[in-house]
Write a protein that binds this DNA or RNA. Structure first.
Lengths: 123, 123
DNA sequence: ACCATAGGTAACTAATAGGTTACCATATAT
DNA sequence: ATATATGGTAACCTATTAGTTACCTATGGT
């Protein structure tokens, strides 16, 4: 169980990874890292798509708890929250470090070499 | 740009994160980490869903280059490839470490405190 | 030679994701 | 007091995802 005893079946993991799977949402995170506390309007002004579409992306990020918000008057200030990513990262590195550092890339190399050898034989 | 100068808009990033966004695919990775070189049949035997569904998951992992395969006779041996994840990880930690270590979680805490304070005032 | 086994395609279906426009509610500024 | 700006909902459309069954191909064992 690389992802932890219950990580591969963890629904929170689903939420985080699928939140990060869209370029627009990663860009929102970039924006909020650069300038924490941006309003919804300010964020959506960086996109060609409609404000509503951006708000849906914000909702997805909130669902993954990658985004925290604080309502001030009629505005909503947005903050990136890295904790869920940190948690995944820690679980990963805990159970995975031995595999990570070393023989994994070797397997990749070996398979590629095998493929290359096959190509050579074919040619 | 947390994710690198072109990371938030990197289509490879999309592929990797959306591949990891499904519990079944994370479980496949777990299996292949434990026993590299499993066949398609062996992997699919660990799932309730049909072999074809599993093969589609394998195709998604291959699309993200998280899976390498080597055909041997009528069998296909499967290997996990961590390189794409490593690349994302390195880019992340490069440009993000200062934000990561420290004040980020503080922001989360502050927002939560602010919310808690609001609740208290309301009560 | 033949049958079972491993893998792969094609075509279909249901649900979800990503986007739109139109409309509503509530603060703020004048 | 009223107009404007910010944020939020609702309803809808289209494309993609995740799964199915049915069928095909090729390798291996007997």
């Amino acid at each position: 169980m690389v992802f932890g005893s219950s990580t591969s079946s963890d629904p929170r993991c689903d939420a985080v990874f699928s939140a990060l799977a869209h370029a627009a949402r990663r860009h929102i995170i970039d924006l909020l890292v650069q300038t924490p506390g941006m309003t919804v309007k300010a964020v959506s002004s960086h996109f060609a798509m409609s404000r509503i579409a951006v708000m849906k992306h914000l909702a997805v990020l909130e669902g993954a708890e990658l985004l925290l918000s604080k309502k001030e008057g009629r505005e909503r200030k947005l903050f990136f929250n890295a904790v869920p990513i940190q948690q995944i990262y820690y679980r990963w590195t805990d159970q995975y470090s031995s595999f990570w550092a070393g023989h994994l890339t070797d397997i990749a190399a070996r398979v590629e070499q095998a493929e290359a050898a096959k190509e050579t034989r074919r040619a």
